[in-house]
Design a protein around this nucleic acid. Sequence first.
DNA 1: CGCGTTTGACCAGCGC
DNA 2: GCGCTGGTCAAACGCG
Length: 291
Amino acid sequence: MSNSCSLITELLDEKSSSLGFMELLNTQDVFGTSVLQAGKPSTEPSIHPADQDLKPRVRQPPEVFNAPATPNTSSISSESNDHEQTKEEEDGGGGGGRVENQKIKKMLKPKKTSQKREREPRFAFMTKSQVEHLEDGYRWRKYGQKAVKNSPFPRSYYRCTNSLCNVKKRVERSSNDPSIVVTTYEGQHTHPSPHLHRPIAAIGPPPPPYSGFSPNCAATLPSPPQTAVPSHNQQHFVNYSVLLNSCGYDIGSTNTATQPRRFCSKPSPSPLLTDRGLLEDVVPRSVIKEE
DNA sequence: CGCGTTTGACCAGCGC
DNA sequence: GCGCTGGTCAAACGCG
């Protein structure tokens, strides 16, 4: 329904701006969505209120936010470039007695407080959706929730369920516009999307590269650029999300990966979805037939 | 039983 | 130094 999502992301490090992502932006331009320029000062007034939660913590310059294009398809993104040196290093073998273990470790091995906690590149998306946790093809496990200052809505913290993947994401609603969900991804997946192991990936022609991104897909990409994950896979899923989205279904929930999915009972009359081929491209035919 | 969520506590960084 | 806030941990709990 109100799921007009959009993505805008930017790469703060202009030099490292990956083509794919920039192309994404360009693609958006194609369908009327203004492309936000990277590097805009975060003081941009048009930034959605939700950014307030993102902005304040601008500890490092790299964090920049874009102004939303439209109220409906606004999105932002941010990124901090440096690679994080998380506490992962305390591999030691975290067995039981974690609390004590941690304390002991901290005492014995004080954190490198000297160096600021560096983070993975972050990408924020503002999505107009009724569901907070947008399906993006990966499985997430919620590991925390915090009340957000100046916002009645809590912020949820998710982590990729893949133990080898350190991608995280935060999900929160805009305090001013509850219909807008701000999703911030941090890090990059080091594995393919679980969904893509399903037959779905084998259906339809191979998806085009980023450059050939389907217009009606580019507007919704609740996932940051992938490095290890084949981009076409991501796109594939994006299509999927868009379709569901356009069909008027929630495009995801916390457990969408494990919960039964719903599909359009009938091919949506939506102009964006008249292309049945595209639908088949991302939705298993068997599923479609079922309906 | 395995997996995911909830929730309170804890910690680190930042601003005053 | 202190308080605030964001971020994370992990035990408890719920669900299929």
